[in-house]
Design a protein around this nucleic acid. Structure first.
Length: 855
DNA sequence: AATCTTACAGTTTTT
DNA sequence: CTGTAAGATT
């Protein structure tokens, strides 16, 4: 955040005047300050306030700036008050950033925008107000995926369905998919509903929805779907919101799914047009009926190649049209997105939404932002050339006024280990040249690739940070703690009760829980009440009965204390008295300390909320992953989680067929899958400001065994003029390839063939002068020995010693140590500041001493 | 009820 | 090969 380059990106206080000339200056004189410094297209996007607008904002073209400025303009020009503007994003992070930038732009003059948030938080908020209309109470619980699956497991068990053959996870996926497409149980096409559990999928979905109502709970999908149902069944409520929202803004429109699209359409309609017909016909209209022939809903399942020209309307859209939702002239809705960055098709995002915007919102104005302020010329050219291979796109050409800069590099490595080694060295070199590690990222296709980098960085002592992984509230310890609080807040929360009844272990096993379930079901009471009743009987073994009674008494006590104590203090007491904290204190595994730290963080975060109820309401919707530390460290993450971020230097390893593009995407989605993978590649390259470095390995371990791979077709799709083929650090593109004899050439041949393509040959011809040998040169002149020799003189050690905690005598052989990642172990060898440690669980590892502590 | 053993799968992720 | 989850064992 301290990098000066930051402002060459979206913020642009110093936008080059080339764009406007006299006209721009004239505008600047009459318009408010926030409008100055926008380029003509941006300015257009900000000031076209009436009617539907689609802003196609390529990577690094100032998308967020346009959105925030547009809101500022709406507010400052007095066209609407903050409460009359609906602005939706996908992530809390994006919402927070917009709020922040809006605040900066407008000063403190305007109170925070109440309707700026994620689809889910806004949907959830509307739902709380009208909960009774959809058979919920306003204090309903939001279930996460884990709760969802456990609930489904119970339903499967109740229906005697073998959850080996029909896993609950799969059903959860199906239900999510249906909800993403805006389908209630009765609207699911019969063919699809029959696909699960010998035709019982549809019934299970219905049963699940019913059960949710009884538990007073909603899953993530419901937050939107129940909103749609609410709006359709209660036109008066819909009208209220249509009147309220004078302006609607949508971020990342290419990522919207059908449900989100329907939700937006309903809200974007002019208030007077609410169709009274909508009420009764929702269910019956598209309901194929129970006995209908299994139509495998081709329109929904078969891949529909995206195409800019009008497409056949798809099922859900037809439905919207049939309900009269298409009739009204759309209001002032502005969607911002980039079809070239649509990478979430697999979780329900419909690229069609953005491709068909003009069709869906007649009279829409489409504005293209094509001036890129992030990347240098070569990087942009490479990314543009690559993405041009996609057919289903609206078409944009990114331009920059920046210098060409460094070429994009492509480097081959013998195997993934060498790939990691080479990248590690490049990073160390950058570090020695004074580049901040914070400005370096490694973006992988699949998370298993991260491991090799982590291992390498641990040995090098190079600080790194893994982005992504389990979210804060998804961690077991957080969910356990929350479950305790949920039971205190709402004794009817069976899922929460079940989760912690035997955590920590209190000898209340499955048998006992089953007994509680039976009891509860018979008397139609929650598990909590069942437990209270059963400890008065002698149905349980004395030991179990005693321990359950203790737990119940604790809960009663905590509930009484709830009125007297601040909720943070209560949480502390609950965790201590339940033995939960103690459980982790006694745990000697590597991550126990971290878990205790997380629990502390949870309590800290509770302070931001007024009371327990408020905290629980928000935790599942607006709790973000722990804010990254501010240490200087290399970021390691997946390409997906890199969307929206930018770095000076970006390393993109693993560009091999099968991995990237991923085989599964190809197998399951065909050409659409390939195009999405290509968009992912485009996203990856455009994350880089100054350096994009692509890698492929000839050999990679997949599912344990070594597999020879061929370089990704995407490498062939790069423009030769902007790409440089380099050698892996230490002398050879093959690094350690030497010494393996003829078989190696077989492998080279395999990949060489894919390099007979024009793009590749251009690339080779182009890099002729200066840079040294390329792939055409025999790699046999290099060997592992060469590699090692060239590595030796590097003074990494010198730097690391300076960073390490102290003298090397701090550790001795057989010393017991603790490492944040690998846990406990014993020192078996010492080389300067590098220790070889036999970890109890992780095996033998080489680690820099500053990363371990004595026990 | 807790621990050990075996089977099995194994992109991408937000809310 | 490795981590998880369900099943078998004590």
């Amino acid at each position: 955040m301290t990098n000066p380059d930051q402002f060459s990106g979206n913020d642009l206080p110093d936008y080059r005047p080339a764009a406007g000339g006299i006209a721009a200056r004239a505008r600047a004189a009459t318009l408010p300050a926030y409008l100055t410094g926008l380029n003509p297209e941006q300015s257009d996007a900000v000031q076209t306030l009436d009617g539907p607008v689609l802003v196609l904002a390529g990577a690094g073209t100032g998308k967020t700036r346009v959105l925030t400025t547009r809101i500022a303009h709406i507010l400052a020009s007095g066209r609407a008050r903050p409460g009359e503007v609906l602005a939706v994003t996908f992530t809390n992070k994006a919402a927070r950033e917009m709020k922040m930038r809006l605040g900066q732009m407008l000063g403190q003059a305007i109170e925070g925008m109440p309707w700026l948030g994620t689809f889910h938080s806004i949907g959830g908020r509307i739902l709380r107000v009208h909960a009774e209309l959809v058979q919920l109470k306003s204090n309903y619980t939001v279930l996460d995926t884990d709760d969802q699956i456990r609930l489904l497991k119970q339903l499967l068990a109740a229906d005697n369905i073998d959850d080996k053959r029909w896993p609950a996870r799969m059903l959860a996926g199906l239900i999510d998919g249906w909800k993403n497409r805006g389908l209630t149980p009765s609207q699911v096409p019969a063919g699809e509903a029959a696909m699960f559990g010998n035709g019982r999928g549809g019934k299970l979905y219905a049963a699940y929805q019913e059960r949710l109502k009884i538990l007073n709970a909603a899953d993530f999908g419901d937050l939107l779907l129940e909103n749609i149902r609410l709006f359709r069944e209660h036109p008066d409520v819909l009208r209220q919101y249509q009147q309220r929202f004078k302006y609607i803004l949508v971020d990342e429109y290419q990522d919207t799914n059908v449900a989100q699209y329907l939700w937006l359409r309903l809200l974007a309609q002019a208030p007077s047009q609410t169709s009274p017909r909508a009420r009764g016909e929702v269910g019956s209209h598209s309901d194929p009926g129970e006995g209908a022939p299994p139509q495998i809903a081709d329109s929904q399942l078969a891949e529909t190649p995206p195409h800019p020209t009008p497409l056949p309307a798809r099922g859900e859209r037809e439905q919207a049209v049939a309900l009269g939702e298409n009739a009204a002239p759309p209001k002032n809705i502005c969607c911002v997105g980039d079809d070239d960055q649509s990478i979430y098709g697999w979780r329900g995002a419909e690229v069609d939404n953005i491709l068909r915007f003009e069709h869906d919102f007649p009279g829409a104005k489409v504005i293209r932002l094509e001036r890129n302020y992030r990347s240098t010329g070569h990087i942009l050219a490479a990314a543009s050339y690559l993405i041009a291979h996609n057919e289903g796109r609206l078409g944009k050409t990114l331009r920059t006024e920046d210098v060409d800069g460094e070429m994009v590099t492509v480097t081959g490595a013998w195997d993934s280990e060498e790939e990691a080694r080479a990248i590690g060295e490049e990073i160390e070199q950058l570090q020695r040249q004074g580049h901040a590690l914070n400005e370096i990222a490694i973006l992988v296709r699949a998370s298993f690739q991260m491991r090799e980098f982590e291992d390498r960085f641990v040995t090098l002592g190079l600080p790194y940070r893994v982005i992504g992984g389990p979210r804060f509230y998804e961690r077991a310890e957080i969910r356990d703690a929350l479950a305790y609080l949920r039971v205190i807040n709402s004794p009817a929360d069976d899922l929460a009760f079940e989760r912690i009844v035997n955590v920590p272990k209190r000898s209340i096993g499955d048998a006992t829980v089953q007994l509680l379930h039976d009891h509860g079901r018979r008397r139609r009471i929650p598990l909590y009440e069942a437990a209270r009743a059963i400890i008065e009987t002698d149905e349980l073994k004395p030991k179990t009965r005693g321990s359950l009674r203790d737990l119940m008494m604790s809960f009663e006590r905590w509930r009484a204390q709830r009125e007297l104590l601040p909720h943070t203090e209560l949480a502390q007491i609950v965790l201590d008295e339940s033995g939960y904290t103690e459980m982790w204190q006694k745990d000697r595994s590597a991550d126990a300390a971290g878990r205790l730290e997380n629990l502390k963080e949870l309590i800290r975060s509770m302070e931001d909320f007024e009371n327990l109820q408020g905290f629980l309401e928000h935790i599942s919707l607006v709790m973000d992953r722990d804010g990254g530390s501010d240490e200087d460290a290399v970021s390691v993450m997946t390409l997906h989680s890199a969307k929206g971020l930018e770095f000076d230097t970006v390393f993109l390893p693993g560009w091999e067929e099968g991995l990237f593009p991923h085989q599964r995407a190809l197998d399951e989605q065909g050409r659409a899958g390939l195009e999405e993978e290509r968009r992912l590649a485009h996203v990856g390259i455009t994350r880089a400001r100054k350096r994009a470095k692509l890698y492929f390995a000839t050999n990679r371990r997949i599912h344990g065994s070594w597999t020879t791979t061929i370089p990704s077709r995407f490498l062939d799709e790069l423009p030769g003029d902007h790409v440089e083929i380099t050698e892996s650090k230490g002398g050879s593109g093959w690094g350690g390839a030497g010494g393996y004899g003829a078989s190696r050439f077989d492998d080279v041949g395999a990949f060489g063939s894919s390099y007979s393509t024009p793009g590749w040959q251009r690339a080779q011809a182009n890099r002729g002068r200066g840079t040294g040998s390329g792939f055409s040169e025999s790699p046999s002149s290099f060997s592992r020995g060469d590699f090692a020799r060239k590595r030796a003189p590097l003074t990494i050690e010198g730097e690391l010693v300076a960073k390490s905690t102290g003298t090397q005598s701090e550790f001795s052989l057989q010393q017991r140590v603790f490492h944040q990642k690998f846990g406990y172990g014993e020192v078996v060898r010492i080389d300067g500041n590098k220790l070889t440690i036999a970890f109890d669980k992780a095996g033998e590892k080489k680690v820099v001493d500053s990363f371990v502590e004595r026990v």
